[in-house]
Design a protein around this nucleic acid. Structure first.
Length: 202
DNA sequence: TGGACGATTGACT
DNA sequence: GTCAATCGTCCAA
């Protein structure tokens, strides 16, 4: 889908062709631009979790399936899955094509189009986008966007400068049973849109 | 082919 | 703090 001279990711997303924990850190502060119903919604990523195929907690751990195949695309694609039959959760695919890795977008901070997101969510304030299912609902994302190229409309990923290390906190991940002890959750320290704290910090 | 389970959320006690 | 909602996936049989 994204092959351009073999397994090389596109230059635009080279910053995500790194080990997934590093990509998860680099995505903090980056923006998502969603075009929906003729409107532009802009958000900043403030909380992420890293998953890759060597991680028992990852959907890609058992190899490619029709459901998770997007995780095996090149960096800069989107992987969407349905959680608990109710919520759509978004991941930014990282690493090389053929290697199943991605970063779950757990929370974002609204920058533009907040009223529209509130209407879609049915509530506002910090509960607008402080969880993975909430992000999907606020931005109107569903499984039709899985495998989407984040260089293109209607959903684009915009790189932003890497945050200083002291601005980023680390903890164990939320809501998983396998490899639950791994410190693979990252969030912007002090940001009000970060989801409720669940795990031990490190 | 059946059934257990989940990278969650929100309502309710 | 507890628990129901809700359905696509995956694996065991």
């Amino acid at each position: 889908m994204s092959e351009r001279g073999g397994n090389r990711p596109r230059e635009q997303f080279d910053f995500l062709d790194v080990p997934v924990e590093l990509a998860a850190r680099r995505l903090l502060g980056c923006e998502l631009h969603r075009e929906l119903d003729g409107e532009l919604l802009r958000v900043r990523i403030v909380e992420t979790e890293a998953y890759d195929q060597d991680d028992p907690a990852s959907h890609s751990h058992r190899g490619p399936t029709p459901r998770n195949r997007a995780m095996f695309e090149a960096a800069g694609h989107l992987y969407v899955y349905l959680s608990h039959g109710i919520h759509y959760c978004c991941n930014v695919v990282t690493g090389r094509a053929g290697y199943g890795s991605g970063v779950l977008i757990r929370a974002v901070e609204p920058l533009e189009g907040e009223a529209s997101m509130e209407a879609r969510r049915g509530r506002g304030g910090f509960e607008l986008t402080n969880g993975p299912g909430k992000v999907g609902q606020a931005l109107g994302i569903d499984r039709s966007l899985t495998g989407h190229d984040l260089a293109l409309a209607p959903l684009r990923l915009i790189e932003r400068p890497v945050l200083p290390p002291e601005a980023i906190a680390t903890s164990i991940r939320v809501g998983i049973s396998k490899a639950a002890e791994l410190p693979r959750r990252f969030y912007v320290r002090g940001n009000p849109y970060v989801s409720r704290f669940h795990g031990a910090p490190s």
